[in-house]
Design a protein around this nucleic acid. Structure first.
Lengths: 218, 218
DNA sequence: TTTTGTTTCAATGGACTGTTTGAAGGAGTT
DNA sequence: AACTCCTTCAAACAGTCCATTGAAACAAAA
C-alpha cells in the first residue's frame, strides 16, 4: 500500500530508470546507477522487472502512454474539422510527442524510441504494433481524404514524406544545431515549424493531385 | 610491401571491422571478433589503430569517402543544368549513398553513420565538418536558386524538409517494411522514390514561393 | 506470539570486455 | 653472424557489468 506522495520501490525504480536510460541509453546505463538513484538495492531490478532489458521496455511503454495522454494527435478535432486542420493537429502533436515539450527527460526519452527505430531490438514489433500502427493509420486516413482517387502507394508515400520532415528534428538534432540555431525545434518555435511543414506538405500534395491523371473531386 | 591481391594485416583489419561494426554496431562489436575475422591477433587493433574507437572512426571515414566516390552528388550536372535537374541528381546520390546500392555491407555502414547522427560521439564534429557540411551547402545552394528572394531560414527549412524525406528510409527502415513492402527503398525502386520526393518537394517549394509576399522573379 | 509471505540487503559469482606486456618470429641491413 | 626494426603472438591484466543467493528485516494474518 502506498500513498499518493510516497512511491514504492517498483515505481521509484521506473522513475529512476527513466532518468538514467534517458541520459545514457540502454547500453551505457547500469543497473547500479538506477538502483542508487532509486534508493534501492541492485537486486531490486531483477526482483521487480526480471532484467535490465525488461525494465527498459517498461520505461519505453510508460513514456509512450504518457506522451499520447499529454499530446493526443486529434486534439481539438471534431467531425467538422477540415483535413488541413486535422493534419495540423497531427503534426503539432507528433512534434510535441517526439521532441518533447520542454521537459528534458521526456525529450531524451524520445531519443530512446528513436534508437529503437534505428536499431530495433526484439521488442520493436510489439512496441510498433501497440503504439505506432494506429497513429500512422490516422495519418494515412487524413492524407487519403486530401488526395481523393490516389492509389494507396501514393498515399503511403505522402505520409512518409510528411513524417520524414518531422523526424529529422529528432534524427539530426545535433547536425541542425550546427547548421543554424534557428533550425532546431524548441518550445518557442514549435508552431512556426508546424506551420512550415504543413505548408510544404500541402504544396507537395497539391502538386501530386495536379499531376494525377483525370481524377477530379467526384 | 603487399601485392594487390594480398592485403596486409592493417587492411584486413579495416575490412573485417567494416563487416563486424556494420552488423553489430560500435558497442556490440568486439575487438576479438574483428581480429578473428581478419585472421589477426587481438593486439593488432591496438597496434595498428590505437584503439577500438579509432578503428571505428577509420571505418566510418573510409565508408564516407567511398560513398562519395561511388555516388557523387553532382553526377551528370553541368553549368547548363536546371535547379530541378541538380536537385534530382542530389536526391538520387543521397539515397544511394545513405541507403546503399545493393551491397549489404555498405547498407549497414550507412546505419553506423545514422547512429552517429542520433547519438553523436566526440568525433561527430570532425565527421560532420569533413563530410557533411559541403554536401549540405550544395543543397542549400540549389534550393536558394529555386526560391529567389526567400530568406535564409526559409531556405534552410526547405532543405531540411527535403533531406527529412530521404533519411526516413534509413531511420524507419524496419517500420516502413512493416507498413508496406512497396515503401522500402530498394535498388529496384530508387528512381521511382527519387522522382516522388522530387515532385513532392517541388510542390512544397512552389507553394512557399506563392505565399511569399511580393517577391517576384526580379 | 507464532507463522507466513513479501521485500530488502550485502556479498559474490561468472562472464565479457579493451588493452597491455614481454617474448618470439622474421626480414633486411651492417 | 650480429644487430635492428617491424610485426605477431599467447597470456594476462584490470575493469565492468548483470544476475543470483541466502540471510535478514518487516508486516500482516492466525
Amino acid at each position: 500500500m502506498e500513498t499518493t506522495t510516497e512511491l514504492g520501490t517498483r515505481d521509484r525504480l521506473l522513475q529512476a530508470a527513466r532518468k538514467v536510460f534517458a541520459q545514457a541509453g540502454l547500453q551505457n546505463a547500469t543497473v547500479r546507477e538506477i538502483c542508487t538513484l532509486a534508493g534501492a538495492n541492485v537486486a531490486a531490478v531483477s526482483y521487480y522487472y526480471g532484467s535490465k532489458e525488461k525494465l527498459y521496455i517498461a520505461v519505453l511503454e510508460d513514456y509512450l502512454e504518457e506522451a499520447e495522454r499529454r499530446h493526443p494527435r486529434d486534439l481539438g478535432i471534431t467531425e467538422l474539422s477540415t483535413p488541413e486542420e486535422r493534419l495540423r493537429a497531427y503534426l503539432r502533436a507528433f512534434l510535441l510527442q517526439t521532441l518533447g515539450d520542454g521537459d528534458p527527460i521526456t525529450e531524451r526519452l524520445g531519443k530512446l524510441l528513436t534508437q529503437e527505430f534505428v536499431e530495433p531490438t526484439q521488442y520493436f514489433g510489439v512496441l510498433f504494433e501497440r503504439h505506432c500502427r494506429a497513429k500512422h493509420d490516422l495519418l494515412l486516413d487524413i492524407v487519403r481524404k486530401m488526395l481523393p482517387g490516389m492509389d494507396e502507394l501514393g498515399v503511403a508515400r505522402c505520409a512518409s514524406s510528411i513524417i520524414g520532415q518531422c523526424v529529422l528534428f529528432d534524427f539530426a538534432k545535433e547536425a541542425m544545431s550546427r547548421m543554424s540555431p534557428d533550425l532546431t525545434l524548441k518550445a518557442s518555435n514549435i508552431d512556426s515549424i508546424t506551420d512550415f511543414i504543413l505548408d510544404f506538405s500541402l504544396g507537395g500534395m497539391a502538386r501530386l493531385r495536379a499531376s494525377q491523371p483525370g481524377q477530379g473531386k467526384a
